[in-house]
Design a binder for these strands. Structure first.
Lengths: 245, 245
DNA sequence: ACCTGAACACCGTTCAAGT
DNA sequence: ACCTGAACACCGTTCAAGT
């Protein structure tokens, strides 16, 4: 992935003084993503990134304008990975395809809690985000709606996926990281608090606490997505009966 | 804007020793919200908050455990304001009520771009978030679904509102703040870039760019919400026909 | 019980200088 | 063209001390 390119003279010369570090935008972003996955947004400091790349702090600024742009580009680079997953998508049912794409997107975002907040913020900078928005929009276009409806429906799907994934992907509020046990403990703590609430004041919480305790984020997401897509299908059918709805 | 409050004795007495500042959790959070509204998450530093409160930095730590908890509590305190708006909600159509509550929530979040990321993160700390989740869940309970379906539907609505509002509320990526002109300039910049894209590679973008240029965030949100609620209504009707769906 | 100022250990960003 | 180390101006948090 990272060829050096600086010493192309064949003869392996002695680096008598430490070779100067040499980066590329790709290696900078890859390093940033590694740190983000390991230690979250807080852990991504320019100093930590420079150390991982084996260079000085200031070199990072050659490739990105600052920490914000670094985060935007790192998030976007991860989103680019989705296109491999959805390369084969193209059934005769646009809504089925929409569902497949949305779930692939969810899967990519949900186990990177840092991602949600930085995706689709700046389409000039974030080319993969734009392409994904485009890809989803193209599916929606197949439903025979008006441009306005297409815009609204596409934004709704994208907003739902990103919003829900970012929400669900939120780290437990402590420093603890990953691990099956941690999630169970986390859920147990919450359900414990919820069960201690007054049942008269919180009938809904008591109604769903058992479901919450054994819920899967992915199923919860899929269920919500299906509600949204069912509404969209309804609209598409109404639209085809009455073309200018 | 900033009255001192320390020299209320009429006679301009020499403050030989400055009166000690006195806070409360409420005043700390109110100060935090003011700063957040004025200058965003980045602008909320403990030092800036202490200065606004007229005290020393360390006093803030008497009321909150740190900056993270401050953000969580500030966000939750704003959410508490929603209950006044929805006090009268209670028609005979649960989905209509759901719609009203969701829109009130959206309105509260969308012009506070900092809010979305901190809402509903810790229900032990954030009591208003929990109560809002409860309130929405109670409406969903009226639809005659199973606990599992109620859990899923409620989470979907909440996720959609928060996610979309946080998404739409995002500041333009520069330092520019508010103003009608700024939004138009912002939209013009994006649509300009979009129109410059290759129409063959980006048919969807070209299809909706005019709509995007004149879109209203609120209408965009409402349209997406209506899709979701239409799907939910469909499910509720199917459920009442076949009680154990 | 609550507030203070100073100190500590960090951080993003810049810049003149190097290769 | 790209990298470096040191410096600057900040920041969250802690702590011993005050009232």
């Amino acid at each position: 992935m990272a060829e050096q390119g600086t010493e192309s003279t064949g003869r392996a010369r002695q680096p008598r003084t430490r070779t100067r570090a040499s980066h590329s935008l790709d290696s900078v972003l890859a390093g940033a993503v590694e740190i983000l996955d390991e230690s979250g947004v807080q852990g991504l400091t320019i100093r930590a990134l420079a150390a991982r790349l084996g260079g000085g702090v200031a070199s990072v600024y050659w490739y990105v304008s600052g920490r914000d742009e670094l985060l935007d580009l790192a998030a976007d680079s991860v989103l680019g990975g989705i296109f491999e997953q959805i390369a084969d998508v193209g059934s005769d049912d646009a809504i089925d395809d929409l569902r497949t794409i949305a779930i692939a997107m969810f899967d990519t975002i949900v186990d990177r809690p840092w991602l949600g907040a930085y995706v689709l913020r700046d389409t000039e900078l974030q080319i993969h985000s734009l392409q994904l928005y485009e890809r989803i929009g193209e599916e929606v276009m197949r439903l025979g709606l008006t441009p306005r409806q297409v815009f609204h429906a596409t934004s709704a799907v994208v907003g739902f996926v990103i919003g829900t994934a970012a929400d669900l992907g939120q780290e437990p509020p402590a420093v603890v990281v990953s691990g099956e046990v941690t999630r169970e403990q986390y859920l147990a703590k919450i359900t414990g608090e919820w069960r201690a609430l007054d049942a008269t004041a919180y009938p809904f919480i008591h109604h769903i606490v058992d479901e919450f305790e054994r819920h899967s984020d992915r199923e919860q997401f899929a269920a919500g997505l299906d509600l949204l897509l069912a509404g969209l299908r309804l609209k598409a059918e109404a639209g085809s009966a009455e073309p200018l709805g």
